[in-house]
Design a binder for these strands. Structure first.
Lengths: 210, 210
DNA sequence: CTTGACATCGAACGAATGTTCTGGTATTAT
DNA sequence: ATAATACCAGAACATTCGTTCGATGTCAAG
């Protein structure tokens, strides 16, 4: 019944193992043990499960940490469980993404600029970090340099920036005309949001709020 | 040095445990064992780690599955990393997380309920999906059933729900007293946010806004 | 038929790991 | 001071769990 292929396609028991792993992970929050997979997947022996786990690992579908209990990680999120009657009413999609935890360095008052703490402040608490999916950023940024600022103040609606929004920025090396930039007033240790214009060799900073 | 409080605030070793769990989970993809926490956190004994894990569980910061290896789940996403002279010039951290794309099914006006589209709408466009890191959800949810609603209206501040917030919900099978639930008025095809109370066998729905 | 690769089964071993117990020390309350 | 509580240390125990190994079954090619 089941064709013996060693190609990229998955065999029936391999798929079952993957589905069981995913389901277990989703319901319990941690990966299953081999015996958990055996039970949920109605496998006859732990060695069989291990047998397929080895295959799945060499195929690159999972990663395993040797001699570590529940050391199984799904490489792909969901993917292959299509086949047959795919019938998937699109609901919640689960995927793995690069997530960046960007420190929120301070706040910007769109109207009146506000103090920004020194760059080497001792700690970051929960409120000072924002998680952003990598796919939401403009492609490939120098990730290490990114930081975030929270916007206070009701103005700046014209720039699609509202009160409470968190702006993710990078230290600009090259700035173009019309860019919305956060200007760091070095002497004042303050930051404010301005539109940037370079005119006749002189820099003009247009306030973002009308 | 460290004040002994049993209140809501976390003590230093508790915070360290949380941070270790989170870091281990982020780097390895599965939760740490007690001895892993002991090593990474420089704890002197497994019993000490277990001691704090029990505290954290009763505080509701983690969930544990008894007699299951690595049966630890972070309840909150990110804990309260802070304090102690960790002095880590913490920059942008990059990690891989499970990301859920949850469809936004409609909007809730906290004051006046609003129409919710039929459950079987054909497609999901970009605006009707919200991406949420798996770690921000209460661990074991039936992921497939989740959906989201956007909150309009300035009330409900008491429930920590503000205008523009997006609430992620699941179809409730069992609802407990005091839960904040979205009531679906089937005849009106409308949804509204209420607090749920079961008193004397009768259901009381307390409006969320004062 | 034999051979060999693949798949399956069951059991057992040993390491990984959660749990518990006894005792000790510090801090706080009475 | 004394008791009570929180905190810590170390060890031992019992279970969970990954791993391995031999035996058996299946099937296609030689």
């Amino acid at each position: 019944m089941t064709p013996r292929r060693r190609s990229t396609t998955l065999t029936d028991p391999q798929i079952k193992v993957l589905k069981v792993i995913e389901e277990y992970q989703n319901t319990n929050g941690f990966p299953p043990s081999i015996r958990d997979i055996q039970d949920m997947g109605k496998f006859s022996s732990t060695s069989v499960v291990n047998y397929y786990l080895e295959q799945l690992e060499t195929m690159g579908h999972i990663k395993r940490s040797g001699h570590v209990s529940r050391g199984i990680r799904l490489v792909r999120p969901f993917s292959d469980l299509a086949q047959s009657a795919s019938r998937t009413i699109q609901n919640v999609r689960e995927s793995v993404q690069q997530v960046l935890s960007i420190p929120v360095m301070g706040r910007i008052f769109a109207s009146e600029p506000v103090h920004v703490p020194q760059s080497d402040f001792p700690y970051l608490d929960a409120e000072s970090v924002v998680n952003v999916a990598r796919s939401m950023l403009p492609a490939r940024e120098k990730v290490e340099e990114l930081f975030a600022l929270e916007v206070n103040g009701d103005s700046m609606i014209d720039a699609m920036v509202n009160d409470g929004d968190i702006v993710i920025m990078k230290p600009a090396k090259d700035v173009h005309n019309g860019d919305l930039v956060a200007i760091w007033l070095r002497d004042k240790d303050e930051t404010t949001l301005k539109y940037f214009f370079l005119e006749d060799g002189k820099v003009r900073l247009q306030p973002a709020n009308p």
